[in-house]
Write a protein that binds this DNA or RNA. Sequence first.
DNA 1: GCAAAAGTGTTGTAATTACACCCATGG
DNA 2: CCATGGGTGTAATTACAACACTTTTGC
Lengths: 251, 251
Amino acid sequence: MNILNKEDYIEQVSIDCVILGFHDRQLRVLLPKIKILKNIWTLPGGFILQNESLDDAALRILAERTGIRDIYLEQFRVFGSLERSSPGLMQDVLDFHWDKFLESGLTAEDVAWVQRRFISIGYYALVDIHKVVPVCSELDESCEWYDIKELPPLAFDHAEIVMKALGYLRLMLNHKLIGFNLLPETFTMKEVQDLYETVLDKPFRRNNFQKMILDLDILERLEKKFTGAANKAPYLYRFKNNIGEADLHLE
Amino acid sequence: MNILNKEDYIEQVSIDCVILGFHDRQLRVLLPKIKILKNIWTLPGGFILQNESLDDAALRILAERTGIRDIYLEQFRVFGSLERSSPGLMQDVLDFHWDKFLESGLTAEDVAWVQRRFISIGYYALVDIHKVVPVCSELDESCEWYDIKELPPLAFDHAEIVMKALGYLRLMLNHKLIGFNLLPETFTMKEVQDLYETVLDKPFRRNNFQKMILDLDILERLEKKFTGAANKAPYLYRFKNNIGEADLHLE
DNA sequence: GCAAAAGTGTTGTAATTACACCCATGG
DNA sequence: CCATGGGTGTAATTACAACACTTTTGC
């Protein structure tokens, strides 16, 4: 448990990741429940190594919890108010793991730095929820997906961070075509529409939506998908991978 | 010169401000030239006090250089790559001010922390350029406005930060009505159009632009402005101050 | 009265919305 | 052959872009 060696990290700065997936017309957030006596969940987070860029740190933190490395992620805001830290909660966490610190020869002073005021860089990640196998870290009791509309009790200002991430996703959905990162390799038009309706929280007309998306010229139509349902089989689509960034408004 | 007391600040984190003004169909950036032997300009920046929120820190830094406190400002991105720091340049700055450190009883070790890797939070501020009287700090040789299209040589990654700020302003101009922060209390429709054309770098038709802006229902028309020119006097407008945030898309 | 710049109205075109119909599929 | 959901075409509406004309101002 030498992961808490103060000198390795940039002090008083953390990264918190809002990992978003989509399933069953729900936007879901991957949230570990930390091992303390209270029922408290947190955003997957971590610190920045001295010889590591911000994006690399975020990627490392994400890979730890999701097992995948090719992830779409982006910083969206820094959280740095004075009220956001909660030394009491951090003390509870330290208390819970105290025996491990003793084993590693760490003293209370060695780990006290985690109780200081922290500035947190918010990253959001969009993943194919089916590709992810949530992984518990040593500090986690569980690590599961939660509907963004029914979040469990979150520590610090993490509920606010989730909501800001959602706001950012909403804002960007029509600028960059980031939404497709939430879908699997192949998908039906209905899945795309469900995604857009869920994120933007407004309905679209089926035919108009299809025209809108297809006119972007970013999807290629594949074979039909026979689900066994008693209705016409929908086409499958795949995101074109040979599209220039200009077309995608990826700045 | 005890402004460099390491314990007062969050280490390895800085704030850099892109202060934007508008005049004469030019977007201008307020840039201090630092007192070293080379001709190098920087963004107005500073550190975050332990008992100060990010926004408060940015406001303090801005007030120091502009003399005004009611400023529109917002963080837009964090810059944290490994290559962005430049210990050599920081050493030049320290060398130039060495006598002051000696006077204050500071040693080389006391101030060495400014040469470490820094993460910088980018803020951009939109100001009425006529209200601002640029102020030199103790470290500045000069502090003036520069056309964003003809920037002087900037230190570190500050040129990139300016360009990212411009990109953010472009993106947001149609979402939030932030552009009016760049205009004086009262203004003509032509000034608004000049601003939009300069920022977005594309022309608008006079009548269509006027309709677009007035349809937003955010401006109130005042008396005419007689400039002495041999043409019809344009109306002056003022930004309505009783508008709900929802109307302004201010989230 | 004239040039310059501002105000306003009116048309044409493109984009969006709304409605309608037909087709495939499995029971 | 029927219910269900998917594909597609077309009309109605609205928004936007383009053009034209009128008004005010100082010389």
